[in-house]
Design a protein around this nucleic acid. Sequence first.
RNA 1: GGCCCCAUCGUCUAGCCUGGUCUAGGACGCGUGGUUCUCAGCCACUAAACACGAGUUCAAAUCUCGUUGGGGCUACCA
Length: 429
Amino acid sequence: MIRVRFAPSPTGYLHIGGSRTALFNWLYAQAKGGKFVLRIEDTDALRSKKEYLDEILDSLKWLGFNWDELYYQSQRFDIYRKYAEKLLKDGQAFVEKTEKGEAIIFKVVGQKIKVNDLILGEIDFEAESFKDQVLIKSDGTPTYNFACVVDDADMQITHVIRGDDHISNTPKQILLYQALGFKVPYFAHLPLILSKEGGRLSKRKGATAISEFRNMGYLSQALVNFLLLLGWSPGENREVIDIQEAVKIFDLKNINKTAAVLDLDKLDWINNQYLKTEDPEKLADQLIPALAEKGYINPQEFDRNYLLSLVKLFQARLTVLNDFVDWADFFFQKEVRIDPQAQAKHLSVDLSKEFKMFCQRLDGLEDFSIENIETAFRQMVGELGIQAKVLIHPIRVALTGKTIGPGLFEVIYYLGKERVKERMAKWIK
RNA sequence: GGCCCCAUCGUCUAGCCUGGUCUAGGACGCGUGGUUCUCAGCCACUAAACACGAGUUCAAAUCUCGUUGGGGCUACCA
């Protein structure tokens, strides 16, 4: 039985780097029918924050990486101490007294250590260069390397899949596995994700919290797809691949060794790919809070079918879901807010005659359908002997306040005859 | 500094293991054109890379070594 783990420290939010590590662990467990263990490395009481923990847990859930087991290192201090004392008894560790207390330190014996990494291949280290390793600090808490080894062994982790930055920890950990008589797991070190400016992801350089992507209106499937393409390729020139399919073909062997530079342009594209094909019902559900917050709808009581129609109208042109809130605002607002530049460009000449005429034509329509609206409009401009666009743009601005947007006849249809006439009347002298 | 990892278009990558099929493929982004009432979308096209140097070989993006560049670790942080 394959067992993998993701071990975040709640000293910061979950970001692209961490979630990519979580993804590959989760994916590997799914692909092999194994278990995905979540372990919270909260041994540093000072830096660990509940706020971060909640964000990590929520984001993981949102991404769909559900865990089979959950552990907190802060609740396992007695286990670490037990193993440290065993090493003490064996003579493999010693106590060092300081003003703060007693630390337990592991004696490093010089030797060659081979790490057989599933991604990087064989790497040789010389333990000669390692200092003796602190196991239990003088404040009684375990160090990272020690807690990590004890837990990975105790939780029967078979494959340690983690970031490249841990590669030099690996030989030190192997020493500990051997000293404790534990079976050494397989290691797979993922190439790091670098910021665009170079260097690793940090708060100042591209380490955007996953919860923030969520708030911006990225779909979790899109983000996962994007993550998937960072360091792994499904081959066959495929870019859009959903998680279920990835589970079928994923293998650690296909992960490349090269660090990836984070470039969010592709995420935007992928997000649009998913937005275009996503079920409008789901998108509508996700939009309700944001629309309610703006006061555009009453979440308890609104016309769902109407919202659905509007979602369909905008779906293909959205980069992030939240674009809808701004772009479709005119469907919800009582008063349209006209963009001054748009007004200057398209509504500076007097079109009273044309607007009045069009309103009359709309009134004359027995069946107020998109098709009929367009026919009536085309007929009218034909009679007037003018180009359609000469009128289309001004009408769009009058109705939506913007120069961009969906097709005018759809806009007219969904706005409804009364609102259209009302908004156009403002420009009739 | 020491130890370790990495190296294909601006970016993500395919190809590398098992040299010839690679005048190096795809995608994003960029640019151009088409479609439409605008934007988005869609369609078509263009520019764009094997870091460098040796070596092995009939033949190297693919194998070897070196150089350079990038990155990581070097804590009683995780």
